[in-house]
Write a protein that binds this DNA or RNA. Structure first.
Length: 274
DNA sequence: ATCACGACCTGGAGGC
DNA sequence: TGCCTCCAGGTCGTGA
């Protein structure tokens, strides 16, 4: 579900909880990603603290508090973070609830691929998941020359290269296909067979694709919703993802679907150079 | 060291 | 209606 634009949409719609006091913490006790459970003791230690700020690095959301600790959340494939009235019944697969007086911030994740953790503010990058992240394309500049140097050493496909969170943080399966179409590069093209100009174009395309999706509040293919439960509109603006057999909007050739590293990949066979 | 693959989970869609 | 198979927006550990 959530790539960078979706997580950023959640972050923005969560802003009304800034300043709220955490009055209670509950967790389901079930393991999430890698069967890791939310750290109950560390979470409970946050009761009494206020939510101070909401940040995002790639697909990770960071909830800073007035305590020295911050909450780290990753939505995985099916995770949602929503603000509810505390009296609303809890949905199935609710795994963490932060009481905020009359409201609650709830983490619901049917597939349990998400993460909830606690880190010390300022030392986020010690967390193994955050330590490996490359630059965030919306909050940090991406040095195309540096990305090109990385690409030169990679024999994998460009698609796999773009999905590598250590190269650029936040690009997922939808926007990888979209950015490669935008840059007119075939997803199966070997990363080390690209020119500096091609990588520059790709980097620019990634930023454009993510910013465009953000303007439309993210892509809701099945179930993505923001913190208020609203869907995003970007699905109708996708150029290739999910459009097998439809005409390419640049050249009218039929969009193809292939599988790269086990993931659906969409591209135009005529205007994306192999 | 690098890469592709399968595993991790549940639920929805489509075929029969 | 019910059962089966396939598919899904992510990440990590494995074995080649």
């Amino acid at each position: 579900m959530p790539e960078l634009p979706e997580v950023e949409t959640v972050r923005r719609t969560l802003e009304p909880v800034i300043g709220a006091t955490i009055t209670s913490v509950w967790d389901s006790g079930l393991g999430l990603h890698m069967n890791r459970k939310p750290p109950r003791r560390k979470l409970r230690a946050l009761v009494g603290a206020k939510i101070a700020a909401l940040r995002r690095i790639g697909k990770y959301l960071i909830v800073d508090t007035t305590a020295p600790q911050s909450i780290v959340a990753h939505l995985g494939m099916s995770g949602r973070l929503r603000i509810h009235d505390a009296r609303d019944p809890r949905a199935p697969h609710t795994h963490a609830v932060f009481g905020l007086g009359a409201r609650e911030l709830r983490f619901v994740d049917p597939r349990r691929f998400g993460q909830i953790d606690v880190v010390t503010r300022g030392a986020e990058r010690v967390h193994p998941s955050l330590a490996i992240l490359g630059p965030d394309p919306l909050t940090e500049g991406i040095d195309a020359a540096a990305v090109s140097r990385l690409a030169r050493r990679r024999k994998s496909s460009l698609k796999a290269f773009v999905l590598d969170q250590g190269v650029i943080a936040g690009v997922g399966n939808i926007y990888a296909s979209e950015a490669l179409w935008r840059a007119k590069l075939r997803p199966s093209k070997r990363a080390n067979r690209t020119t500096v100009a091609q990588i520059s174009s790709l980097v620019a395309s990634i930023r454009e694709v993510l910013e465009r999706a953000l303007v439309h509040n993210g892509t809701s293919l099945r179930d993505f919703v923001d913190a208020d439960g609203e869907s995003g509109d970007n699905a109708e603006y996708l150029w290739v993802y999910g459009r097998r057999g439809e005409p390419c909007c640049r050249c009218k050739a039929k969009i193809k679907r292939s599988v790269l590293q086990g993931r659906a990949t969409y591209y135009c066979p005529t205007c994306q150079t192999p």
